[in-house]
């Protein structure tokens, strides 16, 4: 299926362009990822800086920030997710059309960060929705966000359209919607989506 890289170059020299549908499809998708216009805390300021002229995320085709989840491909969780906000974040994620990707930006979004022991801070958004790229930092610099985005592009590029390894949006049996946690008397219910998140084993 895959064309030999060397052969491809040789054919290119003769004016023949050879590719696969998968390559073409992923090339188109990875270069036009529309992020959702959605900021949660101070990381959002760095996210905004990333979109502006100096760092210019437009170079990677992700400058069209959509104010509606229906038109967005990628959600950047940019900041602290409070327990009060978490159901809304999951709901927005559910409203996005497949294929959809998530970047958890900053210490708060990946683990709760400096507010981890707080009474109102979720200990990482990956407890409820699948996260593709985690970026540490408080806040991460715009370069880190660009790095995360390039990592995501590589991930999109490597996605197979068929076979067992195909991504969620090409698998009719895979879940497209994730349960929205309910605010209960003492905490969110459930405290984590067991299909998405299991407590990592700490080796001591």
């Amino acid at each position: 299926m895959a064309v030999d890289q060397q052969l491809k170059i040789e054919m290119g020299k003769q004016g023949v362009f050879v590719t696969t549908l998968q390559e073409l499809y992923n090339w188109g998708r990875r270069n036009s990822v529309w992020p959702m216009n959605f900021g949660l805390a101070c990381c959002a300021i760095e996210m905004i800086a990333t979109t502006m002229a100096r760092y210019d995320i437009a170079r990677f085709g992700a400058e069209v920030f959509r104010p509606s989840p229906r038109q967005a491909d990628m959600m950047i969780i940019s900041g602290t997710v409070t327990k009060k906000m978490a159901p809304q974040v999951v709901r927005l994620y559910n409203q996005m059309a497949e294929p959809k990707y998530v970047i958890a930006m900053g210490a708060c979004a990946i683990s709760g960060g400096p507010f981890k022991q707080g009474y109102n801070v979720l200990k990482g958004i990956d407890r409820y929705i699948p996260v593709d790229v985690h970026i540490p930092g408080c806040p991460p610099r715009p370069e880190a966000l660009l790095q995360a985005f390039i990592t995501l592009q590589k991930k999109i590029d490597a996605e197979a359209l068929t076979g067992q390894e195909r991504p969620r949006f090409l698998d009719p049996d895979a879940p497209g919607e994730f349960p929205v946690p309910e605010p209960a008397e003492h905490d969110l219910e459930p405290t984590a989506n067991q299909d998405v998140w299991h407590a990592p084993v700490v080796i001591r």
């Binding site: 009060k84 109102n120 008397e185």
Partner: peptide
């Protein structure tokens, strides 16, 4: 906090979940 929340987190005897 949300409306259905029952505790008062700044009290000294608050026990987090």
């Amino acid at each position: 906090m949300w409306d259905g929340f029952k505790d008062h987190p700044m009290r000294k005897d608050y026990v987090e979940p």
